[in-house]
Amino acid sequence: MARPRGQKHPVRLSVSLEEKDHAAISRLAADMNLSTAWIVRRAIAEFVKRYESGAQTELSLIRRSSKEI
């Protein structure tokens, strides 16, 4: 999903990932000849679109303490 042509100043976001998740995204990016940033942007855009449309999601948006995870 390309960035809209009119968007000149995207917002930067820093996210920490678990090593296994970063490795998985890196493998996907390499296999698909894409950047990891593109994959993350696409995943976020799709999640937001589903959330805004009222679609059910399996991801719980209630934050749990690290002891519960």
Rank of each mutant, 00 (worst) to 15 (best):
E58M: 02
S66W: 05
I39K: 03
R5W: 10
D21C: 09
Q56D: 10
A55N: 06
A29T: 08
V15I: 15
A45T: 08
A24V: 04
G6N: 14
R42T: 14
F47G: 10
N33G: 05
A23F: 06
H9G: 08
A29D: 08
S26Q: 09
V48E: 06
N33E: 12
I62Y: 01
S35Q: 13
I25M: 04
V15F: 04
I25L: 14
E18Y: 04
R63A: 07
A23Y: 05
A30Q: 12
D21P: 01
V11R: 13
S14I: 07
L61I: 03
R41K: 11
R63S: 05
P10A: 08
A2M: 06
D31L: 11
Q7A: 14
A30E: 14
T36A: 10
P4D: 04
V40Q: 02
V15S: 02
S53T: 02
S14C: 08
R42G: 05
R63L: 07
S65P: 01
M32P: 02
P10L: 07
L28H: 09
E68Q: 10
E58K: 06
E46D: 10
A2F: 04
R41L: 02
Q7V: 15
P10K: 07
E19V: 11
R41D: 09
S53Y: 00
E19M: 05
L61Q: 00
S16Y: 12
K49S: 05
S60W: 01
S35W: 07
R5K: 15
W38M: 11
P10T: 09
R63C: 01
L17H: 03
E18C: 01
S53E: 11
R42Y: 11
Q7G: 07
R12Q: 15
A2G: 11
T36Q: 15
R64W: 03
P4K: 06
E18V: 02
E58S: 08
T36M: 11
M1T: 12
A29L: 09
K8V: 12
G6W: 14
T36V: 12
R27A: 13
I62K: 07
F47T: 10
A2W: 02
R63D: 04
I39Y: 03
T57I: 09
L61Y: 00
S53P: 00
H9S: 13
I69Y: 05
G6R: 14
L59G: 00
L28P: 01
A2R: 09
R64T: 08
P10I: 07
A24Q: 09
I62W: 01
M1D: 13
A43L: 11
L61M: 03
A43Y: 04
S60K: 03
